[in-house]
């Protein structure tokens, strides 16, 4: 086995592993594992609806932030 192949195999596998680790850490940081039973239920009741729900919430948040910013921009002290 040539050295290059060993480097390639080790490098790629470690990189892939690290990718998985990063995903795990991200999930941990965003609180996805804080509730064990809910975490499992998400897998059990996985549906398109939940996905839509998540997208809707994200949109709602974006809108709310936008509104807030606009309000700040248009804020005029009444004098």
């Amino acid at each position: 086995m040539s050295d290059n192949i060993i480097i390639l195999m080790l490098g790629i596998s470690t990189f892939l592993g690290a990718l998985g680790l990063w995903a795990l850490l991200w999930g941990l940081k965003s609180g996805q594992f804080n509730d064990q039973s809910k975490f499992l239920d998400t897998a059990r009741y996985d549906s398109e609806e939940d996905y839509k729900d998540a997208v809707m919430m994200e949109q709602k948040k974006k809108d709310a932030i936008k509104r807030k910013k606009e309000k700040e921009k248009n804020y005029m002290p009444n004098d």
């Binding site: 039973s37 809910k38 239920d41 729900d53 809707m56 919430m57 948040k61 709310a64």
Partner: peptide, 26 residues
């Protein structure tokens, strides 16, 4: 049960002005 968690989250999500709602089942 988990359905209760689901329902509460769902209803809160549909409420205008609620940005985030997460319920811990445990």
């Amino acid at each position: 049960c988990s359905a209760c968690v689901w329902l509460n989250e769902k209803v809160l999500h549909q409420t205008d002005g609620v940005i985030e709602a997460t319920i811990n089942y445990s």
